[in-house]
Design a binder for these strands. Structure first.
Lengths: 200, 200
DNA sequence: CCGTTTACATTGCGACTGTATTGGAAACGG
DNA sequence: CCGTTTCCAATACAGTCGCAATGTAAACGG
């Protein structure tokens, strides 16, 4: 066996550089040379780990998904035992909002990818299932959380997810501050579950 | 006076070609030559009316805004006299959703611009005021429409706008069909105004 | 020690980009 | 008829792009 290097680590390093470039110059600035420069490497190395630009892109997209997944499960774990559905949802969703600079950077890249995949339906199809699963989970939580009788859990789930996405967009655009977004998220949960009952 | 041509018309023609290119190949494919080809003109002509690419971009962005504005006021006019706030909102917002192929195309371009402006804060600032005005209008309608007492009109307006944006995104991604989005929009209005009272 | 395999670095190529420049056709005032 | 101004076409240029090809250093099995 010749010279061995941790393949996964290198790819992660490169993907990280890609994210930095994309986050502050946009996806269109993501080129082999720019990413290489951001990673402090040579273009040849990037090319060694990703034979094509598209390959690099789709990998970066998967990294974003994994990061969000990790964020969510970390937040859920911090909640402890068996939280009430409403608290669970609030923890999950607020974690997905771009409330600090780190998540804002990720969010900008995610937004760029959204536009990117809008023109490449094949890539978008992969996200399709994920959305469906997420909607199912949200609906189940809404059902379990004892929503007001007049709300249809499935429609409420669609609305809730849409609110999340929309709030994220407007946050990224800087159209209002984080607290406004959080307030709107809470208001949405209020609409679904009824107003929060503060313990005396 | 030498050879005279309707300046506005030419720019509109070019912007239209730009939209077509952007709608089915993404903003990154928008180059002088591509746009010229799509417009059936020479690159030189495009250059004559837009001295720089950015100038062309910002013009196209303004075209999108005008189209949406026109769509909304047309829909509102079709509503006649003095509609109830809820009907007004529903007409306005559903008109902004990418429900048919024409609006889907516009939506893809708008999404691309969203990502585009996320990296150019100066351009985004222009949209800032528009969002604030829209939020104010929505809140006023919600107030006037006799929302349930437990809803804060301002927060509900933020939520409603976010739902709109989010539904648009997911529609563009093809994650669910138009009727699902419309149902979610109605459900959101139900949450705000209370369930619709069907006339016997 | 040797050959093979992996990990990179470098360079080159053709295509494309935005922009500047130049040139000519058309239309009008004088 | 002439000059000027507008419209647009064509071309030139420097830079970047993705990608392929080539070269080299290192590490291991035999």
């Amino acid at each position: 066996m010749p010279k061995r290097v941790d393949h996964r680590e290198r790819r992660a390093l490169i993907a990280d550089a890609l994210m930095r470039v994309a986050a502050d110059q946009g996806l269109e600035a993501v080129s082999l040379r720019h990413v290489a420069a951001a990673a402090g490497a040579s273009p040849g190395m990037v090319q060694h780990y990703f034979r094509t630009r598209d390959e690099m892109m789709t990998f970066a997209l998967s990294v974003i998904r994994e990061r969000n997944e990790a964020r969510v499960s970390r937040a859920v774990a911090a909640l402890g035992g068996s939280p009430r559905p409403r608290e669970l949802l609030r923890a999950m969703l607020s974690e997905l909002l771009p409330l600090d600079e780190e998540r804002r950077a990720d969010g900008r890249v995610a937004l760029a990818f959204l536009a990117y995949t809008a023109v490449r339906p094949a890539v978008a199809a992969a996200l399709h299932d994920e959305t469906a699963a997420l909607l199912g989970f949200l609906a189940a939580q809404i059902r379990a959380g004892g929503a007001a009788p007049r709300v249809d859990p499935d429609r409420a789930a669609v609305g809730l997810l849409a609110v999340l996405e929309g709030l994220g967009i407007y946050l990224l655009g800087g159209h209002y501050p984080p607290e406004t977004a959080l307030a709107a998220l809470d208001a949405q949960l209020d609409l679904i579950f009824g107003p929060e009952t503060p313990k005396s």
